[in-house]
Design a protein around this nucleic acid. Sequence first.
DNA 1: ACAATATCCTGCGAGC
DNA 2: TGCTCGCAGGATATTG
Length: 303
Amino acid sequence: MPELPEVETIVQGLNRKLKNRKIVDLWTDWPKYFKLPKGEKNFRRCIIGKKIISVERRAKNVLIYLSDNYLMLVHQKMSGHLMVGHWQKIVSADNLPENWQGQKWRPVKFSGPFTDPMNRFIRLIFYLDDGRMLALSDLRRFAKVLCASKSIIFNLPEIKKLGPEPLDKNFTYKKFREPFFSKGGKIKQLLMDQTFISGIGNIYADEILWASKIHPLRTIASLKEENFRELYRTTQSILKKAVRLRGTSIDDYRDATGQKGDYGKMLLAYHHDGEPCKRCGAIIKRMKIGGRSAHFCPRCQKI
DNA sequence: ACAATATCCTGCGAGC
DNA sequence: TGCTCGCAGGATATTG
């Protein structure tokens, strides 16, 4: 679900709310979430009793720094949302809110945005020592949660391989341009390749390409220097603006407190197929590229 | 070696 | 109304 701006927004919220909290218990109805890297045997033991030092973002991963040099990594994948709320144990299921009726029983009352439909899909809960909880709502159950010592997590291949952060101060044009010399293929797929630049997914790839007037099927070899300049510029400006507006809530994305992001109304290509292009008036098209839908203007994004 | 496809899941809306 | 199909913001494994 969330891409860089959404994960960044969530992380900022979590960091404010979770700092110095101790994790006292956890509950899940989907133990498959837990992945233990080599050297760790027991997820519960990794987590319980640990204090949360800080929360940071790397690519689309949420990094929760714990005491004893431990680190919990959460990847929300397509439908995951981390949120913080108050909780109390529910003794009887009789007075569950309407949107929980008929759902699998959950051991808590989540009093954040209680009527938020996403609450139905809370599958994992970390209970905190201040009476609050960190919950993972995840309709499709794709999310992944890892816990291990810092060094083990940072040495995982999927973390080590990650490309540079596009909003990092050190992300110069040179750094952006360099990998294109050695890689081929189509521009859209490369923009979404996490080993190339980290944090860009389907929405922002489409927006960046529209803003740069580049067709998603353009090959790297066909791009001119001015195209790369434009891609570099729009990548940073679009992601920055999306972070400022707290992400895109087309469907179900929420920040850590259940609020929607405001970048949705800024979208100019993504989900605008069938509508006139805001720049030239041609009808925005949608096509499948590498199993994902791409939205683009067939007139001003020339192939 | 590369790229297209299947896979992990569930819910929703469209179309018949 | 009720069924089936396609679709969804990700990443990895498998196939061709």
